[in-house]
């Protein structure tokens, strides 16, 4: 059962991810954003299969909810109709294929060099939300506070950047 679900979610993630990057039917950024939402939701399914339930919820809430709404707002704000006509250049396609070939080659080489994991350890922390919260507020308290400061700085920066006259 779990294997079938893994293959379904992995297949959906990769198909939707490919449709974000290269959609044969539409070059509109709105369709890319919608397929990115679907990619993120199917990836949340993979997180559930990995017993990371809290992260799956956060993934759907923060990414599929907040971040993608921000993307859609900006796409609507910019009104990018004339972008659809331009073609992908041959040179950039060749460069892209060469670079992903190199990256995938490195990944395959390193995967083949590793020992396969024989037996999956039983999940010690099932549901993992309570241990995750404990870890977050004890060992990782300082990074947690720094991240809150980072969010504040980002908010101030966004307000400053979106003012009409930049000085």
């Amino acid at each position: 059962m779990e294997e079938i679900l893994f293959y379904i979610f992995a297949f959906l993630t990769l198909i939707f991810g490919a449709l974000v990057v290269a959609n044969p039917f539409s070059r509109n950024p709105v369709t890319s954003a919608m397929f990115l939402v679907l990619t993120i939701i199917s990836m949340a399914g993979l997180f559930v299969l990995l017993h990371a339930f809290f992260l799956a919820a956060v993934q759907v809430l923060v990414y599929a909810g907040a971040v993608m709404v921000l993307f859609l707002f900006v796409i609507m704000l910019l009104d990018l109709k004339e972008e659809e006509r331009r073609k992908v250049k041959k040179l950039s396609l060749v460069a892209g294929l060469i670079s992903i070939g190199a990256i995938v080659g490195i990944f395959v080489k390193s995967l083949l060099a590793t020992q396969p994991v024989k037996d999956l350890p039983a999940p010690m922390h099932d549901g993992a939300t309570i241990p995750l919260g404990k870890l977050l507020f004890t060992n990782y308290l300082l990074p947690f506070e720094i991240v809150s400061l980072l969010l504040l700085v980002a908010m101030v920066g966004v307000i400053l950047l979106s003012k009409k006259d930049l000085k």
Partner: peptide
């Protein structure tokens, strides 16, 4: 790899 392909080939800043 898909994301990298998109960064290199797509010309729209949002994509």
């Amino acid at each position: 790899a898909l994301g990298l392909l998109g960064v290199i080939t797509r010309r729209n800043l949002l994509v």
